[in-house]
Design a protein around this nucleic acid. Structure first.
Lengths: 275, 275
DNA sequence: GTTCCGCATGAATCGATAG
DNA sequence: ACTATCGATTCATGCGGAA
C-alpha cells in the first residue's frame, strides 16, 4: 500500500515554486497561457513580453527538476497581423541560454481541429511539444508507449507467418534465428515524434487545452509509478488528474481561484495505491 | 497553344540569381541542403554558418519574387550532440529582419521516415514547410487543393440530426450551424496546415528528397497556369518536372553538374500546352 | 491479368572504436 | 581530449518477379 500525493497550490507560479525542493521533480508537463494580443485576459501576456515573463519561471523549473528529468512544454504561437509570432522561437533560444538542452520537438497533430476558413491560411491543426532536459542522459521508458504496427503490415504478413518462420529456422540451423525474433511479436513498433490525437470534445462543463491522452503519453514515456509530475500552469487540472490515475505524485500550481477549486474537486487529496 | 518554358541553370545560386528579373516569380519552392556536421559533402554548410550562408540567397529571392508571390522553404534541423540544432529558428528570425513576413509554418508528416532506435529519442517523422511572403496580401488558390472529406467528419455529420443543427443554430447563431450547412452534401473540404505524405521510395535510379506531391500541392495552392516557379536548389529537379507538367513556367538552379544533366533529361526544353 | 510476397532503400542517430 | 568513421538499429513503401 503506497500513498500517491496530489498537491494543488493556488497562486502565482513565479512566487510559489520556491516551495518545491531542488531536484525533486521527474517530469514537468505544462501548457502555459499562450501569448495574446489582448491584455487583461487570463494570463494575458503579449508576444513581446512573453520571453521575459517566462524566464523567471523556467529558472525555477530548472532548479526543481531532477538531473534525469524532462520538461515538456506544449505551446503554439498565434497569428498576429497575418504573421506567425516568433516568441516561441525566441523562447527556445532563451531557454538554451538559460541552461536547458533542447532535446526534441514533438508535434501534436490535432486530427479533428474544428473547421473554419480564412482567405490567407488554412486551419491550424498542430501544436509544438518542446522537450527540454538538464542533461543528455535522462530517463525515458520507450516501451511504455509502443503502438500497434501500421495496417500495411497486416496485409503483408498475414499469409507469411507460419511458413516463413519455420523456413527461417531450418535455414539458419545453428544460431538463434535472428530474423525470427524480429518477426515474432512484431505487432507493435516504437512511435515517432509525431503524436496523433484527436482534440477532446468538451463534454464536461469545462474545456481543457489538451486531451488527457497527451499528458498520459508523456507521463508514460518519461516517468514510472511513484515519480513526481509538476504542472506550473495547471489550468483545469488535466495533467494532475491523469498523473494521479497513473500512480504518479503530482504538484499543480494555478493562479485562477475558480480553476483551483475545480482541480481540488477533480483529484482525490490522497489516493491509496496497491502495490 | 502556349509555350511553357522550363529553364535549368547550372551553377551557384548566389551568383546566378542575378539573371532573373525583379518581381518576376510567383512561387519559390525549394529544399536547400540541410546543415551538416561534416564539411566537404554536397552543400556542406555547418549549422553555425547556415544563416550567414543563406541570407545572401534569400535577399535575391526577395528581389525576384512578385509582391503577391510566396516563398516556401522545406527544411528540418538535425540532431547535433543530442540536441536539435537551432539554426532553423535563427534563420526564421533572420529572414524576418531581412524583410520577409513569416506567414505560416506547414508541417509535412512523413509517414515512412527513416527507421532506427535510440535510447533518447524516437524517429523524426516531420519536416517544416515555412511560408514567407513579401506582403500580407498574396495569391492563394485554396479551392485547388480541396481534399476528400475525412471519415471523422462523415461520422460527425451523419450523427448530426436536424434537431441538433437547429439547436446549435439557436444557441450561438453564427458558427457551428452555419458551417455545417455549408458542409452538408459536400464531399471535399479545405485541408489544414498538416500535410500527410510518404517519402518516395527510391527503387528507381533517381532519388528525390521529397515526393512529387509536395511541390505539386504548393504549386496548386499558390500559382495558376502560366505562372513562374523558381527552385534555387533544384537537386534532382522534382519541382521543375512537376511545374512543367502542371503548365507552369519554371527556373531551376543547381550547382552539381550531374544533377544538372539529370534535370535536363527529365524536363522537356519547351512544352506545348493546349489551352 | 490480378494479387502476393521478397527485397532494397532511405534529408537518421548513437555509441564504440580508431587515428 | 577531440574528431572521423563504422556498425547496429528500425519501419513504411514501391518495384519486380512469382503464384
Amino acid at each position: 500500500m503506497q500513498t500517491i500525493e496530489t498537491k494543488v497550490i493556488c497562486g502565482d507560479s513565479r512566487e510559489l515554486m520556491c516551495e518545491i525542493p531542488d531536484n525533486s521533480v521527474d517530469l514537468i508537463f505544462t501548457s502555459p497561457p499562450y501569448a495574446d494580443q489582448r491584455k487583461s485576459t487570463y494570463g494575458g501576456v503579449t508576444p513581446d513580453e512573453y520571453v521575459d515573463w517566462f524566464l523567471p519561471i523556467s529558472a525555477e523549473l530548472l532548479r526543481v527538476l531532477k538531473p534525469t528529468g524532462t520538461f515538456v512544454l506544449n505551446i503554439k504561437e498565434k497569428v498576429v497581423d497575418s504573421e506567425r509570432s516568433t516568441y516561441v522561437l525566441e523562447l527556445i533560444l532563451a531557454l538554451r541560454k538559460q541552461g536547458w538542452l533542447w532535446t526534441e520537438e514533438f508535434m501534436w497533430h490535432k486530427k479533428n481541429s474544428f473547421p473554419g476558413k480564412w482567405s490567407n491560411r488554412f486551419r491550424d491543426s498542430w501544436e509544438r511539444l518542446l522537450q527540454f532536459n538538464k542533461n543528455k542522459k535522462f530517463s525515458m521508458y520507450q516501451d511504455a508507449v509502443r503502438v500497434p504496427i501500421g495496417d500495411w503490415a497486416k496485409d503483408r504478413l498475414k499469409n507469411l507467418s507460419e511458413t516463413d518462420k519455420t523456413r527461417d529456422n531450418a535455414k539458419n540451423g545453428s544460431g538463434f534465428g535472428k530474423n525470427v525474433s524480429n518477426w515474432v511479436g512484431k505487432d507493435t513498433v516504437y512511435p515517432t515524434n509525431v503524436i496523433h490525437l484527436a482534440t477532446e470534445c468538451n463534454n464536461k462543463n469545462h474545456s481543457a487545452a489538451f486531451p488527457e491522452q497527451l499528458p498520459e503519453w508523456f507521463i508514460k514515456l518519461f516517468t514510472q509509478e511513484q515519480d513526481t509530475v509538476l504542472d506550473p500552469f495547471a489550468g483545469s487540472g488535466t495533467t494532475l488528474v491523469v498523473a494521479q490515475r497513473m500512480g504518479r505524485h503530482s504538484i499543480g500550481i494555478e493562479i485562477m481561484p475558480e480553476y483551483c477549486e475545480m482541480i481540488k474537486d477533480a483529484v482525490e487529496p490522497a489516493q491509496q495505491l496497491l502495490l
